[in-house]
C-alpha cells in the first residue's frame, strides 16, 4: 500500500533521513520506534507532504506521491495526526471535526462517519460545543485522531499519540488505534512508548539517526536484545 524507497530528507543541510526504505501493507499497523531525532516524525511529515524530500520515492497505491502538496495527499486517503495534538484551540469540538472533512462533499457519508466517531469517542459528544482548548490532554488527543478519521482515510499516520498522557490513557490510545485498524484503516504509529506500540502493531521498524537499523514482526522485536535494552527499559 505504501512503499518508501531510498528516502532522503534534509533539514537545513543536516540529513534527517538517509536512504530509508519501508513497505506498509494494507490492513497493517506498523510502528516506528527510535530515540528522539531518529527521524520518525520526519518520515511521517514527508509522507503527508509537509516536508519535501531531497531524494527518493514514495508510492501510495501505485501512485507516486513524494513532493505532492499536503492537500493532494489528504485527498488520496492519508490522514496525519501530528505530534503535540495540534487541534484548533479556538474552534469547538464539532468545528474541529468539520475541518477534518473539509475536502469531502458526500453529506450522507459525513453524517455516518460523524456518528461513528462519536460512538468511538463518546466523551467528544459530551463536549461537542466546547472549545478545544478547554479539553484535557487525553480528550484533545482523541479529538485529533477523530478529526483525521473524519476525512475517511485508508491510512492513518499517528505521531506520538500518547505523548504527555497519563499511563492509563496511554493504553487507551493503544486500544483506540487497534479499534480503528479493525475497521480497515492501515496505520503507521510513531511512539516513544515502544511497549505499547509493539503490543498494538504487527510489525515495526527501528530507526537510529535517520536510518533503519532493524525491522521485523513485533514478537521478534520484543524478543530481540537490542530493542529490549534500548527501548523497553531492560
Amino acid at each position: 500500500m505504501l512503499k518508501i524507497r531510498d528516502l532522503q530528507v534534509d533539514y537545513g543541510g543536516i540529513k534527517a533521513l538517509k536512504k530509508v526504505c519501508m513497505d506498509i501493507h494494507k490492513g497493517e499497523i506498523v510502528t516506528l520506534i527510535g530515540a528522539n531525532g531518529a527521524g520518525k516524525t520526519t518520515t511521517l511529515r514527508t509522507v503527508s507532504g509537509l516536508k519535501k524530500p531531497f531524494k527518493g520515492e514514495i508510492w501510495f497505491n501505485d501512485m507516486r506521491i513524494d513532493g505532492l502538496s499536503p492537500q493532494r495527499i489528504v485527498k488520496l486517503g492519508i490522514g496525519h495526526v501530528p505530534e503535540g495534538r495540534h487541534v484548533f484551540k479556538n474552534l469547538t469540538v464539532l468545528e474541529n471535526l468539520k475541518t477534518g472533512c473539509y475536502l469531502r462533499r458526500d453529506k450522507e457519508g459525513i453524517k455516518r462517519d460523524m456518528e461513528g466517531v462519536f460512538e468511538h469517542f463518546p466523551r467528544l459528544r459530551e463536549r461537542i460545543r466546547q472549545k478545544a482548548e478547554s479539553l484535557s490532554g487525553g480528550e484533545q488527543q482523541m479529538l485529533a485522531i477523530a478529526r483525521a478519521l473524519m476525512a475517511g482515510p485508508t491510512m492513518l499516520l499517528l505521531d506520538e499519540p500518547s505523548l504527555g498522557l497519563a499511563p492509563v490513557l496511554v493504553w487507551e490510545v493503544g486500544e483506540i488505534v487497534a479499534g480503528i485498524n479493525k475497521r480497515g484503516v492501515t496505520a503507521i504509529l510513531v511512539e516513544q512508548n515502544a511497549q505499547m506500540a509493539l503490543s498494538v502493531a504487527g510489525r515495526g521498524y527501528v530507526l537510529q539517526s535517520g536510518g533503519i537499523v532493524l525491522e521485523g514482526t513485533s514478537e521478534d522485536l520484543v524478543k530481540g536484545e537490542s530493542v529490549k535494552k534500548a527501548y523497553l527499559g531492560g
Binding site: S69, Q71, V74, H80, P82, F88, N90, T99, L103
Partner: peptide, 23 residues
Amino acid sequence: TKAGLAMRAVSDNPAAASLQGMS
C-alpha cells in the same frame, strides 16, 4: 460556512489546517 471555518482553522494553526486538506 465551510470557507469561514477554513479561515478560522488556518488562523488558529496553519500546519494542522493544511493537514486537513486546506490550502
